[in-house]
Design a protein around this nucleic acid. Structure first.
Lengths: 194, 194, 194, 194
DNA sequence: GATGAATGAGTCTTCATTCAT
DNA sequence: GATGAATGAAGACTCATTCAT
């Protein structure tokens, strides 16, 4: 299994740095290889082609995202508490890896539609997790019984995504995580039973 | 002024069609020229370069967006009514021009960071309009006095953007505008004074 | 029609020279372009890809081959006279263009099977012409009534091809055309009614 | 001596299969190694480089060709009988090994000029054998006293080669050896003293 | 002897832009 | 103003060969 070899992760990490520093279209395979400290051809021992690096990058970095968050929020009883933790996790994870934040919020979106569709598949798991939190809230009576789950999920994800993108575009110069309680409160307010 | 000549708009409209039908990276200047019924070189009599076409496209198509909406919502007294109209306008305008929806939500995002920054400048006017609505709501007591305007605005814009992108990715096959009342209610709920 | 433009032939002629002088695998598109005195990209205004240059080269240079020979031998009554002329023509044409001889006999055979199949299609017309001569000979009683046309044609073409290839491999340093009467006689002898 | 070790022949046989099944340009060293059941690097313990495999292949497979045929035809008295046997042998040997037929008639010809020159050296022995047969015929008065040996040899070899190549290109689907008597007769006819 | 992971040189093609007509 | 033929820079990927184990 290639994924267990050190060079696999070495190359993915190099890709994050190369893309963050040079931009999506200026991150040539040769630049990624140089950053990883391997020869150009070595890349192709671990990845089918350049697109495969980017998909793998997203899967490796964001694939665990949903799992980690899921585990983390299981300790909480109420949907409110779960949502707050989810928002905080989301912010903290991207705050901790500034390069990754640039790559996911700005650079990877320049990829073609095909790649973006594959990226969306990875995201789907995360969106389903949000749905679960919302359903919990409905069942427990925290949210109105006729809450439109899909709409609420789009509100949560859209809001977070917009906030993070704006923060990255402003060079990550303010404390994103500090907004977590406020935005959570506002979202919960929106879903509340009046 | 080039903008008053018919070929200027002819080329921009051709660009929307060419990008929507072929995708951002497959919409070469020669394809846009062909679609517009002019020679490749003619493009450069009206636009500095290819990027200039795209920026102008966004300015022409979305620049009026804010103005139209502003005018439209002035008839409404309450922030709630204004927001509802704004959301509806936003959905309707993109529903009416399927090509434009594809271009703004999917294709133009593949452009480089530089272009996206310029696009954001065009958006700024629209974001300021949202801010005005929110301030009205605070002043009139419809929203809590300590509403975080920036956060609320990101929530509104992020939610709408996410909703529209999902709708476009699903081939625009459901009625987007029908969700306007629901999403408005949910947003207003979030901003409400408890 | 691209074929009527001077650069089309300019590029094909440059390809013949470039391949003859550098060898098939060392005749890069950039070398052909340089030899033709055009930019690399210009090649692609006249040819779909590199393979297209080579096929066109063969079609242009050898496609007329059959036609010319056909016209030329129509003045002769007997199959014997026709065959002699055909052999002579074949030798003379390749003797007159040493570069072309190298390209067709040695270099183009290094092309992949796909390209060689297309080349064979061009040759087919020539092989049919040989068949016609043979049929004429049978009808006129010059050759035996049960002459195996296919076999005879393979004998003619195989013999000529082998002779020319050997001659090219020996740097074209002897007079190939001088052998025409002898080889014709030997071939005719083989087909004769005893 | 490397040639006496089993892996030497194992690799050559693997090369024949790999080239026949994948084509010359798709028969990478790694594919040959896999087919031979050895590691890539092992190839280089037995062969200097890839070209060396191909030359050795030709030498091993065709080198015995002339010897076998020479031995076989020594039982015959007349040049006519010898030639018939030679033609038959030639056809039968290639009919018996379809892979080898594809490799020698189609694939190996895609090799570069240098390799083809070395292949020709291996062939020289066979061509000399043909010359001997022809000289025998002249001495015995079977052929005309002024038979052009070189020409006759090119006629024989060219004819056989063309016949076999056509047969391979037609997927070896007809009985090649069945044509041996006919083609021999035709060739002999051509060399006969009228 | 045997392995196979790593190397890195080499090339076809696209397309935004120019400029002579 | 309008044309469109010509330009030429730039990059992903393959594969024969090596060498540490």
């Amino acid at each position: 299994m290639k994924k267990n070899k050190p060079k696999y992760h070495q190359i993915i990490d190099a890709a994050v740095v190369a893309i963050a520093e040079n931009g999506y279209h200026q991150a040539q395979v040769s630049k990624i290889a140089k950053q990883a400290g391997v020869a150009d051809g070595t890349i192709y021992l671990y990845f089918k082609n350049k697109e495969d690096i980017l998909i793998s990058l997203f899967q490796e970095k964001m694939g665990t995202f949903a799992a980690k968050t899921k585990e983390s929020i299981q300790t909480k009883e109420t949907a409110a508490a779960q949502l707050e933790l989810l928002v905080q996790n989301h912010f903290i994870l991207l705050t901790e890896d500034p390069h990754l934040a640039v790559v996911t919020q700005l650079e990877l979106r320049q990829s073609n539609k095909e790649l973006r569709l594959k990226i969306n598949e990875v995201l789907k798991e995360y969106l389903l997790l949000i749905d679960e939190v919302l359903q919990t809230g409905v069942q427990k009576g925290e949210f109105g019984p006729d809450l439109n789950i899909r709409l609420a999920r789009q509100m949560i994800f859209g809001t977070l995504d917009e906030m993070i993108t704006t923060w990255v575009m402003n060079d990550q110069k303010y404390d994103l995580a500090a907004s977590a309680p406020d935005v959570t409160k506002m979202l919960l307010n929106g879903f509340s039973n009046q």
